[in-house]
């Protein structure tokens, strides 16, 4: 007799537990305001990333096309995967030979976004950008030159 009661109470509890689960899914089925889908390419206009999001490394330029990079090479040294290459040239100012940056080359394809370049830069020349749409057909186009052509060093940066 005890076993028979056990048998039926097992069946009852099993059905009850299944119905509890169905209540949860049923709730979401009828409550469409709980939907969390973001329709990505359509919501580009309203999609805003957090300001600190590490999408890519950038070199901010002022309106007069000035950057803060002195070409010291600390970022290159700190980068764990060699994503940064710095090419420098010399320019003569007031008869003195001075090292300036020629190209700040950034390989986005190798970057792991550890943030060490931005953190260690002594003149705050680098920053993270929020752009995350980096898909390209050609791997070459992931190698970027960060300093814009014709840009010069901001006067305020001490060397």
């Amino acid at each position: 007799m005890k076993e028979i009661i056990q048998y039926f109470s097992d069946v009852f509890h099993a059905v009850k537990s299944l119905l509890t689960g169905m209540r949860v899914t049923g709730y979401y089925f009828f409550h469409h305001k709980e939907i969390v889908t973001q329709e990505y390419p359509e919501n580009r206009a309203t999609l805003k990333m957090f300001e600190r999001f590490k999408g890519e490394v950038l070199m901010p330029h002022t309106e007069s096309n000035e950057h803060k990079c002195t070409g010291c090479g600390i970022c290159e040294m700190n980068c764990p995967n060699g994503s940064i290459e710095i090419l420098t040239t010399f320019e003569t100012v007031d008869g003195k030979k001075k090292k300036i940056i020629d190209k700040h080359i950034y390989h986005l394809s190798m970057c792991t976004f550890c943030g060490l370049c931005v953190k260690t830069c002594p003149s705050d020349a680098l920053a993270f950008g929020n752009d995350f749409e980096h898909a390209v057909f050609d791997r070459q186009s992931l190698t970027k030159v960060l300093n814009k052509p014709g840009s010069t060093l901001n006067k305020e940066v001490k060397e």
Binding site: T25, F29, H32, E34, I35, V36, T37
Partner: peptide, 13 residues
Amino acid sequence: KVCAFIQCRLGPR
């Protein structure tokens, strides 16, 4: 569509 709504999604659109 049904599974999408159950799973808090939108489904094909």
